[in-house]
Design a protein around this nucleic acid. Structure first.
Lengths: 231, 231
DNA sequence: GGCGCCCGGATTGTCGACAATTCTATCCAC
DNA sequence: GTGGATAGAATTGTCGACAATCCGGGCGCC
């Protein structure tokens, strides 16, 4: 059992008076995506209840939600565990992501505002700095901001929810791409192309630029996986 | 309160000895997608418990799952209701569907087997019959079979789950497209093109054929919605 | 007559308890 | 020793009860 403590509300963004059920769900979710629970680790309801200072019913509800979200696996009468996403599935997730991000890029191009464009350029600028100083994890965060900005611009709630969900499932794999030598530099150029395409409000070009970018990510991930399979 | 009765296991496909929790979930799900509960209808836990012959805890778990699935809306302390998906959201769902189905078509082309091709041709044949005899609902079912066959051929579990989920949310809108005059005939031709593209194992062509087909669906739905907005 | 307060009814949120199931380790037969 | 049966521990599934919260109507005050 992991011994990391959960405070009632660590530093988290202030929310309603703190609904017990929500707190349990969010805490567990965060713990899983942050890797404080390992893949395949068992999640015993009673233990979690103690950890969270909640009742078993509450924990159970959270587990059900997380199962539906694909972060947790539950077998009848055998309990819950953190779901391990296989290499194959990670690739599949990334492919779905390509599809959805293409859609996002297309709509973003149609909805483009000067402010959004400025935001994207600013992020791009910051990215450049982090690449030059050789800071992959900082870059990775900016990368997330970049795409997220496009999502809100695209204004497609359904697709956005799906992407957020996919991301939380595949987060363990993100470093297998970004840590590849030369990858940040290339990624930066790809992002620049996306911004250009968006700036010209060309939906087709934006979609294509996004596809090219993420196809590279898929390819990188694929080769990284293949390489480690036969060391 | 709807008074439709739930038998323990109406005629449903046999499953494990019938897990109470699963039964509740499936019954509710089916009731919602079949329209036995109207959009926005309140789902009172105690009532459902009586209906299903289960405890409130069980019903609650089912509601949580359905919420995560997007079929039910729950506000803290205010209970659950059947989620109403707006016209706008239905369009969005359909657009996401286009993206994912393109991906499916691409992979289906790569994985094509003679049996799968035969299946698709058979479904196409049946479709022709139903179109000629003017049976839109029969055609609609075959349409579902057609796409479903492509999904299993594509062998992309993640994308398939998403599509199934999207479909259950937007099922109320399917008749707004298929009932349009001339739509079945056109749809049939589009499906034929998809089969051709798949048969030639051309991934790009398959993807394009699928996109063209579903873009038509989106367009049809869009105009149907616009038309009824201003009658 | 309108506005705000307060109260009962209805409903949800949470808990602990109990039964049912699965898992573990120990013992016995061979 | 090996294999299988068995008892006990651990864990899940389900329930009813109780407190907390929300909703609607009635009352008084201005």
């Amino acid at each position: 059992m992991t011994t990391l403590g959960f405070k009632p509300s660590p530093v988290g963004s202030a929310q309603a008076p703190t609904d017990g059920s929500l707190v349990a769900y969010r805490s567990l979710r965060e713990a899983i995506v942050d890797g404080r629970f390992h893949p395949n680790e068992r999640l015993v309801e009673a233990d979690l209840a103690k950890l969270l200072g909640a009742g078993r019913t509450t924990v159970r509800a959270a587990l059900v939600r997380l199962e539906q979200e694909g972060l947790v696996e539950r077998e009848p009468n055998r309990g819950a565990r953190v779901r391990r996403v296989s290499d194959r599935e990670a690739l599949e997730i990334e492919e779905v992501r390509v599809s959805l991000e293409q859609l996002m890029a297309r709509h973003a191009a149609l909805n483009l505002t000067p402010e959004a464009l400025a935001d994207l350029r600013a992020i791009l600028q910051e990215m450049t700095v982090h690449v030059e100083s050789g800071d992959p994890v900082g870059y990775s965060e900016l990368n997330a901001r970049f795409h997220s900005r496009i999502w809100t611009l695209a204004d497609l709630g359904v697709a956005e929810r799906m992407l957020v969900n996919l991301k939380s499932q595949s987060i363990r794999f993100q470093f297998r791409t970004i840590l590849q030598p030369g990858r940040p530099e290339r990624s930066l150029r790809e992002h620049a192309r996306i911004v250009e395409a968006l700036a010209s409000r060309d939906a087709d070009a934006s979609e294509t630029a996004m596809r090219d970018h993420l196809s590279q990510v898929v390819a990188t991930l694929k080769s990284a996986i293949a390489r480690q399979a036969t060391p």
